[in-house]
Amino acid sequence: MKRDILERLLKARTDKVPVALVTDLSSGMQSLVFHDAVHGGFGLEDHHLAEIRARLRQDHSGLVEFPDVEGYEDEGPRLFVHAHNPPLRLIVVGAVHIAQLLTRMADLAGYAVTVVDPRAAFASEARFPGVELVHSWPDEALDALVIDARTAVVTLTHDAKLDDPALMVALRSPAFYVGSLGSNRTHAKRLDRLCEQGLSETELKRIHAPVGLDIGAETPAEIAVSIIAQVVAARRNAL
């Protein structure tokens, strides 16, 4: 890999720009394919670029079948597409004790983590070193964070005036996971309130509650394990 390619690849990752690294396995030549640009090495036809960009969107790395590429008949596919997408995101609403552990575990699992809590005493740098903190009201915060299909949202405040506005936004977003802390009883009341606010049954069914996989978790750390496990299971279509 040329230094130039490596540096551009690292910059794209820092800037959170999706990019596919395409390698010709027989020559070692490489190109970087962005959604709006191509940089480097060897010529790719428009229909190759379309396929490569589709795979980038699907986060699908692998060998690509381009029968019109020279040598395909003898050697088979020899172009490798390595999709580099920005990390999955986890937005945690409620800078509570469980959140302190969940954010560390999510970071280890490769998630970019944001904690939302207007209560500055909870969402403090001292309690969440190095974590992105947002102090605006949860609905405003989630609107500004622009939830996409690579985002998971977990509400942990236990407080209707903070959790409900967050859920109103999250349940109408393409988030791949929405979870909310609270017992069955708390959750039943929550569903009543959100229903009155105009959320549909389909939207309400998206909430994972009580949050987390049922592993008998008791301590904040154990609950955090159950939550991150459920987020991973949702992402990998294993729920």
């Binding site: 230094r3 490596l6 540096e7 690849l9 690292l10 990752r13 580099h84 990390p87 490769g110």
Partner: peptide, 14 residues
């Protein structure tokens, strides 16, 4: 976390 590995590679090379 493959970005960490690429960063490590760049650091070593540097």
């Amino acid at each position: 976390m493959s970005d960490d590995i690429l960063e490590q590679a760049a650091r070593w090379r540097g």
